[in-house]
């Protein structure tokens, strides 16, 4: 937890003080780091959901289902941050908060898909069924992530391709800042996942205890 704290402080310092203003975007470049890092981490979070869902279906250990559900929640929170910071940035640079740009649209679809997955999970009463069918949904919802990730390559879009095959298309300082923001947000994700997992599995035990008592 201390390490996460240190990295978060470095992250704040690099994004707000260390990174120099950009030529065209000037100070707006600072939103970039709050936008890209959560986006990539949320894709990874949904990837964790996919992997844990497959492992649950394979092994049948309820632990993996708890992790996959926790990862959905955190991934959703990060996607929300991505959408909101993206809207702020778009409002400042493109003039409107929402342009129906392919990446915006596909990311919104992604958000809706995983929000629906959470609602769906809570609509199933039986715990085993919830884990089993929630895991199946967790697997088939993943193409939305892939579509969102590749949308800038499929469509002609306003989103620039920053990360290309030939490396990062940005200055040195901004590259370092992006790296630190990725590490900080990634660690934050792991910490949140760990805490959510602890709470959820404690709740799970409590439920089991109540069931045996009654």
């Amino acid at each position: 937890m201390e390490i996460v704290g240190i990295f978060c402080v470095i992250y704040l310092w690099t994004t707000w003080i260390f990174a120099p203003p950009e030529k065209e975007l000037e100070e707006l470049i600072r939103i970039f780091f709050q936008h890209v890092a959560p986006a990539l981490v949320s894709y990874a979070a949904f990837g964790v959901t996919l992997v844990c869902s497959v492992i649950y279906l394979w092994k049948g250990n309820l632990k993996y289902d708890v992790i996959s559900a926790a990862s959905i929640k955190i991934g959703l929170a990060f996607t929300t941050i991505t959408l909101l910071s993206g809207m702020m940035w778009a409002n400042a640079t493109w003039g409107t908060p929402w342009n129906w740009d392919p990446r915006e649209t596909t990311t919104l679809i992604l958000w809706i898909a995983y929000a629906c997955l959470l609602v769906y999970r809570s609509s199933v009463d039986d715990r085993e069924m919830q884990a089993q069918f929630g895991s199946i949904f967790g697997v088939i919802a993943f193409p939305a992530v892939i579509l969102s990730y590749f949308s800038i390559q499929i469509w002609d879009t306003l989103h620039p391709q920053v990360i290309t095959g030939s490396g990062l298309q940005m200055g040195m300082e901004h590259g370092i800042t992006l790296m630190f923001s990725m590490i900080a947000i990634g660690l934050l994700y792991i910490l949140l996942l760990d805490l959510t997992y602890l709470v959820d599995s404690a709740e799970e035990k409590l439920m089991k205890y109540r069931m045996t008592r009654s």
Partner: peptide, 16 residues
């Protein structure tokens, strides 16, 4: 397995 089948179907079908 869902409790409210009529409302849940669109929630599963639409996003995917």
């Amino acid at each position: 397995p869902s409790e409210s089948k009529a409302t849940i179907f669109p929630l599963v079908y639409f996003p995917t």
